[in-house]
Amino acid sequence: MRVERLGQDKIKIFLTFDDLKDRGINKEDFWKDVPKVHDLFNEIMEQAYEELGFELTGPIAVEIFALPAQGMVVIVSRGKSNLLFGEELEDELYALEVTLEESDFIVFAFNDFENLVTASKLVNKYLVNGGKLYFYKEHYVLVLEQSDVKDGEVDNLIAQLSEFGEVSPITAAVLEEYGKLIIPKDATKEIVVHFS
């Protein structure tokens, strides 16, 4: 489990499927209201407090993104207001709003172009198509669809990409709207051709 601060009132937690398996949780449990998911959330928030000083007060929103063969990304945002239905909340209480999304995209962000070039060289053998490349918030973002990956090679692809980049919860729609499209198709193959 990896915890990262995205802003003063927002954190990101990445859970691998091994993290979930160790706790006896599968991704379908997130769609149900089961005690072990509550225990995991409490563990996440405890780790966020210990590592980042992030405390839960007031209303919070939790977004959970299921990423194919990678795990889950949990985004926790604190609300600005401590008012709920016109009444002040007690400091130790919080209102919880959960959004669950499952993605058919594999999205990796690279903060260094050389890392992207190295990763592209390694992963092309697992790909039918090389995906799209965007530039967004100072990162190169590679977007692959499940259909871009050869059958049975998703785990190998994820393992290789994880060595050089980070799983990203950014959606393809956000990238299309706010990112700069650099290579519209077969991105990893184009990178290898031009930068090897």
Rank of each mutant, 00 (worst) to 15 (best):
I158R: 01
N115H: 08
N129F: 10
G131Y: 00
V107Q: 09
I158V: 15
V141K: 03
G131H: 00
Y126F: 15
G130E: 01
Y126E: 12
K125I: 07
D148S: 13
L144K: 04
F105M: 13
D148G: 04
V128C: 11
S120M: 12
K137Y: 10
Q160V: 09
E114P: 05
G152Y: 02
D155M: 11
G131E: 06
E145N: 13
N111H: 05
G130A: 06
V128R: 15
E145W: 12
L144V: 08
Y136S: 15
D155T: 04
Y134N: 09
D112M: 04
N115I: 04
A159H: 11
Q160F: 07
V149D: 01
S120L: 08
E145M: 07
K137M: 06
E114S: 07
V149N: 04
V123K: 00
Y134R: 15
N124P: 05
Y136I: 13
Q160E: 14
I158S: 06
N129C: 10
V149I: 11
Q146V: 05
S147D: 14
Y126Q: 14
V128Q: 13
K125D: 07
Q146A: 06
H139I: 04
Q160W: 02
A109V: 00
I158H: 02
E138L: 14
Y140P: 08
K132F: 02
K125S: 09
Y136V: 14
D104W: 04
K137E: 06
K150L: 12
N129H: 13
V154A: 08
L122D: 06
S120G: 09
K132T: 12
H139F: 05
N129W: 14
D112F: 07
D148K: 03
L133W: 08
V107M: 14
G152V: 07
S147P: 06
L116D: 01
E114K: 14
G130T: 06
D155I: 05
D148R: 04
L157W: 00
